[in-house]
Amino acid sequence: MSTTTQTRRPHRTGTPRQSGQPRQPRPARRERSYWTYFLPGAVLFTAVIAIPLVYNIYLSLTRWSGIGTPKFVGLHQYTRLFSDELFWTSFRNSLAMIVAMVVVPTIIGLVLAAVLFDYLGRRFRGSVVSVLRATFYLPQILPVVVAGIVWGWILRPDGAVNAILDAVGLGSLAQDWLGDPSFALPTVMLVMVWVQIGYPVVIFMAALGRVDPELYEAAELDGAGWWARLRAITIPQIRPETYVVALTCTIAALKVFGPIFALTRGGPENTTNVPSYFAYTTFFKKLDVGYGAAIATVLTLIIVLVAAGFMVFQARAERKDA
């Protein structure tokens, strides 16, 4: 992503030259237009993304069980949605997911990346740092559902967490972590922090790689400690990557499905239900297709608005820097 912002500039300057290009001598034989190369992609995109997306919006204006013809009901599903307690619960839980998947991992990831790169990276061999980085990244490349199932077992009443608490004499703290309505959401949040932590670590470490090391050396000569360097150099220098991490993780948090499916199926008493799981059950368990389509449409709108907001915010911040 960082490359995209950098690469945009030459692209702009290249455009005027290109407009003069058709005057250059061309090979005599007739050539397929560039559109031909775009054709397969365009057809597939239309069939798999554009049409289904539009059709889904249409379905959100109907009442339909998936059989027979959808009955047009206007905005009924949306008014129904806004008075549905579960809808508000699921989106409140989205905020909890943003805390667990964006805010906490970004902060911890920043500190870990800075420690790995700026502290351990200078004092130990590179392989030590590589192994640690790979370890943090591991949960990111494994199927999150499988990891969720392992966590589900660990957090069961007879699972490993309670056994560990027992072993250290804190058996009274044992809980049904995922089954108790007051503990389920915080527990799921902790699992999501675990899932997500490797992503900012890897990206921030890559970002630190492009920061001029002389900045750090100069700061150190001036007597700046590790914490001062983190605040004065690291954080401002890797701001573009922080935006990317925040944006992609926020979108991921709004979409989260697999871990919820594996850990709690939205329960107990919907305390961990999220919009995507809510839409899934509405579509395929309650066969209330119009309502499910409305949930999915609202979720899509929120994601697009959040992304657009991020981009405007980033553009404004960049302009202020320049």
Binding site: P52, L53, N56, L59, A296, L299
Partner: peptide, 29 residues
């Protein structure tokens, strides 16, 4: 490379498609 007409919009559409929740496509699919 070809810089076909409207490419900025097309690339924007692809970027948008990246962000879409699969729930918004799943039932029609």
């Amino acid at each position: 490379i070809g810089r076909v007409k409207g490419r900025v919009w097309i690339i924007g559409l692809f970027l948008l498609a990246n962000m879409l929740p699969q729930e918004a496509l799943v039932y029609p699919l």
